[in-house]
């Protein structure tokens, strides 16, 4: 893996979107770029379509809850792990989502694999993805209340069930 200075994707991103990049981090050769939420879709489009970079594979999307953590731009974060089959390079893109507006652009239009992963994040963190074709719960029962992967969701005392009446289908 190359260092931060020699990373082509990072250099190109910095040249093309100088105002959108909030922070860059390197850990053992893997680079994470924190960007502004508003520019997510255009940056992703750029990373996917650029002839030299060609990040054609969305490896995973994760949600993070930074409850009670100091110095973060928003409480929740979404991390996209991209992979380029052409160059064998990885890149992580991170955006923060504040509790005031839990909405973020869906990347379903770029990578179809985002479908279920965005539903999972919606299910467990409550982040809504604008432009997703079918944003509904994927793991939990459809009438479940709350988003249990958030740090303030109690381990016990909320959401338990022990009665199962037949539902109309």
């Amino acid at each position: 893996m190359d260092s931060m200075e020699g990373n082509l994707a990072l250099a190109k991103l910095k040249a093309t979107y100088p105002d959108s990049i909030l922070e860059t981090k390197e850990f053992r050769g893997d680079i994470t770029v924190t960007i502004k939420k508003e520019d997510l879709l255009s940056i992703m489009q750029f990373l996917k379509d650029d002839e030299e970079l060609k990040f054609n594979h969305l490896a995973s999307i994760s949600g993070i809850d930074y409850l009670k953590m100091e110095d973060v731009e928003g409480r929740l974060a979404v991390v996209y792990h991209l992979y380029s089959f052409k160059n064998s390079r990885r890149l992580a893109i991170k955006t923060f989502v504040s509790e005031d507006s839990l909405e973020i652009d869906s990347v379903y239009s770029l990578w179809k694999t985002a479908d279920w992963q965005e539903r999972e994040i919606y299910d467990l963190f409550g982040i809504t993805f604008k432009g997703h074709p079918l944003l509904k719960r994927i793991f939990l029962p459809e009438d479940f209340e709350g988003h249990p992967l958030r740090k303030d969701y109690p381990l016990k005392g909320r959401g338990e069930r022990s009665r199962f009446d037949y539902e109309e289908r």
Binding site: P148, L155, K156, E160, S162, R163
Partner: peptide
């Protein structure tokens, strides 16, 4: 699995 998601004994239903 003493948590909200797991039924604490099937004899509840």
């Amino acid at each position: 699995f003493d948590t909200y998601g797991v039924i604490q004994g099937i004899d509840q239903f």
